[in-house]
Design a protein around this nucleic acid. Structure first.
Lengths: 337, 337
DNA sequence: CTGTTAGCGCTTTCAT
DNA sequence: ATGAAAGCGCTAACAG
């Protein structure tokens, strides 16, 4: 038995579909007794207005899309995203919106964007100019960029280059010369280039420090690493097993650093005694783990909130695209000496 | 300028809307040149078929709804959910679905369910019989229950009662008699009763152990606690500051236990020397924190996967409602002696 | 107070 | 190979 429609209710209640519609959306326009009767029938048949039809005519769904060019499995394994979503979710709570998480489907990010029944998007980790993002602009669908370059669209970023510079500089200042860098790998087929977005900016920061401290930058000491605990563990483990003997490690994200911690433990490497380690993000667990992670703090929850607010503003038609830059700062805990 | 529609494209390309539709969904039915022309115009205007209209006629959206009776802000702050979502997300990845996270809106869970443009739901922490869930059944919308009682709907649970019994028994066996229990608080206005779902089952397990060990069960030693780090910290802190001096604490979830860890640290209480602590869930950070959390392990990712698979099966019309019970087991690490 | 009617934007038989 | 027309389920002028 197919789902009951407005017509079914109308028939059973002996009224027109309009009346049923009013009973749900504008009861005051009907006599109380009619409303009651309609609602009774509806309740009886378990009828609820089809959200799709409703959204189609209303022109909006009340849903906010979040898209990240990684698999959902990877996304939710990374506390950075959970924390970012905490911020976004808070705004959804305030505005009674649902949050639709999307990841590239059938090889195409563009398709994912096209199929999503949402009012606007928060796009994480891609530049505004990305070719699969551009269609959104043409279609006039509001979106805000998080962790990506943007000229005209609203965006929220943290000061990656500056803060990774600080992290690398700290290590170099301590005299380290053999430092392994676990950078982001080209996150997916959607990116053509390692030197893209946050990944690029963070690497530049490290690089600038090396330059300023007159330390030779060796490409082989930079390992593109999958943004996951396993990725970090493997990347560090492989390097170590290949004979690399870094005295310090810079990880482009905390989840990667956590992987380093695990791989080091498995090999009996002492952190920070044998190897110093600095991550990035300051995810909530960073200060809970043992040893507590030295890292670059960025206000992740706030980042999500701002992105959410920017999108909500855009949805309301308040068009004052803002590119927000959040401060990030080095936090030394126990994985550095 | 409103978004371009199929008619706009048709007009500009000098064809009928039908042709445009075919160009997108069934190009083989059109001559290659026509397809090309249509697609060119479409691309030019940044046209993409409206997903809502499409879903309306197709009868499905390719989106999976996940609903939890807590604010999104709370949900995403709890690694249990991130981990559960990791499992669900993996299934979404496989089936090219999006994942819509919902939380009660405008005071009404029922409304949240009604407004969601999804093909089916995964409902976490509510019983099948909950009055706000029942409408779904009538409407014939597929859903699966996670962490809730279900008789006829598919469901995934872990063996809460058995495993919390084991946790409490362990403590009691060690001679503890002053044990503080941080149970779930009635999670929200949607639940009328503390003795509901997982919360109830976990409490029963603790209770049964007390009974079997002949230890008097004191209601005052059971504190309903918000399922968050802050909740755990506050609940333990308040109890302690009121003069309670437990020698052991049982927390209904790891995030609560993490809060205890923090509150204890702030007060200079040594764990496990002064107070032993056992959580529940075995979220990924449990073994990373310092001291590593003793807890009850349940396969969270798998729980999410199974829920996802059950829902996908239901969506396909494969109706073999299964109530799955996952094993959970005590894992002793460093917060117990 | 209630019903008629015309869409919302798209897909899909059924003709031509 | 292409188009006309009906309809997905609902809302909202506009009548009466």
């Amino acid at each position: 038995m197919p789902r009951a429609t407005i017509t079914d209710i109308a028939r059973q209640a002996g009224v027109s579909p309009t009346a049923v519609s009013f009973a749900f959306n504008n009861p005051s326009r009907l006599s109380p007794s009619t409303v009651e009767r309609i609602l009774a029938v509806a309740h009886n048949l378990g009828y609820t207005p089809n959200p799709l039809s409703r959204a189609l005519v209303a022109g909006h769904t009340g849903m906010l899309g979040v898209i990240v060019p990684q698999t959902m499995h990877t996304i939710f394994a990374n506390p950075f995203f959970a924390t970012l979503f905490q911020g976004i979710g808070g705004i959804c709570d305030q505005h009674n919106m649902g949050m639709l998480t999307l990841s590239p489907r059938e090889e195409s990010l563009e398709q994912a964007l096209a199929r999503a029944p949402v009012d606007g998007f928060i796009i994480v980790g891609l530049n505004e100019q990305h070719h699969e993002i551009l269609p959104l602009r043409k279609r006039g669908i509001p979106f805000v960029i998080v962790d990506g370059d943007a000229e005209t669209a609203p965006a929220v970023n943290s000061d990656d280059e500056q803060s990774t510079y600080a992290a690398a500089a700290h290590l170099l200042k301590q005299g380290h010369r053999e430092v392994l860098i676990l950078a982001f790998e080209t996150p997916s087929r959607h990116l053509d280039n390692v030197f893209y977005g946050v990944g690029a900016r963070r690497t530049w920061g490290y690089q600038r420090a090396f330059a300023e401290y007159g330390v030779h930058w060796r490409e082989t000491w930079l390992r593109p690493t999958h943004g996951s605990l396993e990725g970090g563990a493997q990347s560090f483990g492989v390097a170590w097993d290949e004979g690399y003997r870094p005295t310090a490690v810079l990880a482009a994200s905390d989840i990667i650093a956590l992987g380093v911690l695990r791989a080091a433990r498995q090999r009996g490497i002492q952190i920070p005694a044998d190897v110093e380690l600095i991550g990035y993000d300051d995810i909530p667990v960073a200060e809970l783990v043992c040893p507590a992670l030295s890292t670059v703090h960025q206000p992740i929850v706030q980042k999500g909130q701002l992105a959410g607010e920017l999108l909500v503003a855009a949805l309301k038609g308040e068009i004052h695209p803002e590119q927000i830059m959040l401060e990030a700062r080095l936090v030394l805990r126990e994985t550095t000496r």
